[in-house]
Structures are given as C-alpha cells and as structure tokens.
Design a protein around this nucleic acid. Structure first.
Lengths: 121, 121
DNA sequence: TATATACGCAAGTATTTGCTTGCGCAAATT
DNA sequence: AATTTGCGCAAGCAAATACTTGCGTATATA
C-alpha cells in the first residue's frame, strides 16, 4: 500500500475532483467538506490525505479545525500533458477544415448533384 | 471488475499515458506497442482495451494485425477540467505579480534600487 | 500444406482501492 | 469540570487493478 501517488492518480477519482472543486476558491475545513458527500468522514479524510500527499492540497490547522487549501498550480503537470495533445488534435481539425473548404471551392469538381449540400454558416 | 471507466481513470496509469504518446502521431499495431514495454503482451492488450473502452483509442483490423489509433479529442474532458483551474491559478499569479509591481512603484517606497527589473516583451 | 505470427480469451494471484466502524485525543463550549 | 465537536489512527473487508501463464484461432509465409 501507499505506492504510486502522483497527480494523475489523484484526480482519477471523481470524489477527489469534487473536493478540489469545492476548495478551489477558498479553504474549507475537513468536516464541512465531508458533509457534502454521502460517504463517511473517514473516507473523505483519506481522500484529503491522498490529495495532500501529491501536493494538491495544503492543510492549515486552526484550533481544532483543519482548513484545506487547494494548490491548483500542482495541476500544471496534467495541464501540460494534455495541452500537447490538445494542440495536436485542434491542429488537425483546423487542417481538415481548411482542406474541406479548399475542396469545396474547386471549380473542377464533377459532382453537380448535391441535393443536401450543407452550407456553412 | 469492469467498473468505472472514464478518461481520467484511463490516463491515471503511466503505461497508458505512454501508449497514448506512442500512437499520437500515427496508428501502431498491438505487438509493436507491446515490444516497447517490459510487461507481457497481454498486459498491454488489457491497457489497450481500457483505452478503447473510454474512446481514447480506435482499433482497425488489417489482416491479422490491429492498428491502434489515438482519438486525442477524447482528452477534451480532461483539458476542460484542468483549464478552468489553470485560468484560476494563473489569474492569481498575474494578480500577485501586478500587486508586487504596484508596490514597487509606490513613490513612498524606500526601495530605490531595482537593478534587474524584468520588462515585459 | 505445415508453420510462424498476431492477436484474443480466460483463469489465477498479489496489490491497491475505497469505504466502514470503533477508539482516542485535544480544542471549544456549557 | 463535564461535554461536545473536529479529526486522526487503525483494523477489517469487498472490489478493482495490474500482471502472468496457458490455450485457441485466424492470417500470413515458407
């Protein structure tokens, strides 16, 4: 146990993503977070621990309460990983669009019957 | 088994991320992929199955070979999820930077020496 | 046609999750 | 001082992972 613990792994769980969303704007204490879910406080506590272990979360003790603060910048690893592919696939879409437009403009096209020609808006 | 199967879950595994990287540019067949890793072909096959199940992968049979083609646009869900927080945290950084600069420009400031002021290009 | 190749389909196992319940302790509240 | 509240620690458990090995089956190739 306690094996791999990286950001990708951390955000794989929907509950943990929800937690991040909940504390993205301002720190929230453990019990307040736990109340929003229908699992036990311990379960949430464990999720928080996992998030904290990979740096996505800071915990500040305040009296008997513990406030969880999101460290969104730690999502950068994910952002960069996805962004490279995002560029790739949007680039392809752009190229495809351009290609289609170019073909449509060809005056040499044989196809004269195009009953339902989908026009671009 | 066969429970949750979403994109976040799929990319949580480093092997699967590596597979995506391997086929992002052009389709590759199963055995070629498997050879790059030091786990069994079956293990890779299962990873491919998982990727295919959540749409990140298309498989085209060609003779006895199966070519795996990446569907990068299916990463959009992840991209959007991260992007919202990316905006948040970069926005905060920008605000912080602006704040610091503003403070530095205060005429009441005692600090007159700013040798390496980083100018924006 | 015999054989090698490119897979898929289990079955079996060790580890890792995700969750629960019970206990304990320190900081607020009464 | 007694009680409530906030939360960690730990044991226990079902389910999911990530692999492996063995077997079966098309499709190429010799």
């Amino acid at each position: 146990m306690e094996a791999r613990r990286d950001v990708f792994q951390a955000i794989a769980d929907p509950t943990r993503r929800a937690i991040i969303g909940m504390i993205a704007q301002q720190p929230v204490n453990v019990n307040t977070i736990a109340e929003k879910f229908d699992v036990s406080r311990q379960a949430i506590s464990l999720h928080l621990k996992i998030l904290a272990e990979c740096g996505l979360l800071n915990i500040q003790q305040q009296g008997r309460e513990r406030y969880c603060e999101a460290r969104l910048d730690k999502l950068n690893e994910v952002h960069e990983w996805v962004a490279q592919y995002h560029k790739l696939w949007t680039g392809r879409l752009a190229a495809l669009k351009q290609f289609v437009e170019q073909v449509e403009l060809q005056p040499t096209s044989k196809k004269k019957n195009k009953p339902n020609h989908k026009s671009k808006k």
